[in-house]
Simulated scan of single mutants.
Amino acid sequence: MAVLLDTTVLPRSDRAEAFYTAMMSASVPSRVEHEDRHGDVHARMDFWQLGASDLFRNEGSGIRLVRTPKHVRIGAPERLALAVQVIGSGLFSQGGADRRVHTGELMLVDLTAPYEFAWTGRGASQAFQIDYDDLGLSVETVRAAARRLPSSPLYELVLHHLTVLPAVGDSLQGTRSASMLGAATTQLVRALLSSAAAEDSQRHPSMSDVLFTRITWYARRHLTDPDLGPARIAAEHNISLRYLYKVFSEHHLSFEQWLIGERLEGARRQLASPASRYRSIAAIAAEWGFVDAGHFTRRFRRAHGLTPQDWRRLNQA
């Protein structure tokens, strides 16, 4: 987590300007109006980088953010934000629609269009921000979803996920898993928006996408567990083995081959690491679930075109 702003360490006269600078660095250009126009501004802004996406939390005294057509013309990354109101309630306006966003509710903001958002007194909001290119949905789909987010069967799941995301993000900062968490969250948001924008008959593929994301996220965190296999994964996600295989087949994958590929990739990274220079290839293979060193060598060469020994020699020369 990076602390972008903490007004408790700033002179009162500098807080409004510092707030504006921090807000512009974390989000898109907009006009900032403070409830206390004489500068009694209280705020803390925290920021988590999660691969290509990010999480931004703002807590403090009353504000009003106005993104005008002029701001849109100035240009900014084509992004959207899915925010949860953590403290207080806010008034959000976009596309001719006004709504009150209460504590514990989601709000979808299309950052490529004008909008207004404000709260009075103390409030807090945290937003997961994604580029449209990474989301893979059209602007039309996003805007259709914005009008009916609570209709999605994924609403409560995504709400809970975003609520606990800061604590999880703190524990993963600086690791490869932080990017994986961002990618998994993007998948969840995509499924939420797709299901909210679609007719009921079109929602089931999105549910499968969510389950696939949860399973692959779980499996990647436990790749070195000796007992990680289809039976354990199915039990952890309260599904049958048959349905587990069906979820992967819908993504044109074999579960077993996907798991072997992920473990081979983990072993490949470890073989190239200076920290593993003095570990035997057999020990590294066993750690990643390959008890037969000969089988590991054959699979590794088939996947990467080199034997494990040649790969290690190439990367640790």
Results as ranks from 00 to 15, higher is better:
L4F: 12
L4I: 07
V9P: 01
R15W: 11
A22W: 09
A22H: 09
M24H: 09
P29W: 12
S30L: 09
D36M: 03
V41E: 14
V41Y: 12
A43G: 13
A43F: 12
R44G: 12
L50V: 05
L55W: 09
R57F: 04
R57V: 01
N58P: 10
G60K: 04
G60V: 00
T68C: 07
E78F: 05
L80I: 10
A83W: 04
I87T: 05
S89V: 00
S89P: 11
F92Q: 08
Q94E: 14
G95V: 02
A97L: 15
R99T: 02
V101Q: 09
Y115R: 06
Y115P: 02
E116V: 01
F117K: 08
T120H: 04
Q126V: 02
I130V: 15
D131R: 14
D133Q: 01
L137K: 07
V139W: 11
R143F: 04
R147T: 11
L149C: 06
P150W: 05
S151M: 09
P153Y: 07
Y155P: 04
Y155M: 09
E156I: 06
L157Q: 13
L159S: 06
H160I: 00
T163H: 03
V168L: 14
L172C: 06
S177H: 04
S177Q: 10
T185N: 12
L188G: 03
L192C: 04
L193Y: 08
S194W: 12
S194N: 13
A196W: 05
D209R: 07
T213A: 11
R214T: 02
R214V: 03
A219D: 07
R220K: 07
H222Q: 11
H222G: 00
I233C: 01
A234F: 01
A235L: 10
N238G: 05
I239D: 14
I239T: 11
R242Y: 09
H251Q: 13
L253F: 08
Q257A: 14
G261H: 05
E262L: 01
L264A: 06
A272Q: 03
P274Q: 11
P274C: 03
P274S: 10
A275V: 05
Y278G: 13
S280L: 05
A282L: 02
A283V: 04
A285M: 01
W288D: 05
V291S: 15
F296S: 08
R298G: 02
R301E: 09
G305T: 00
L314E: 15
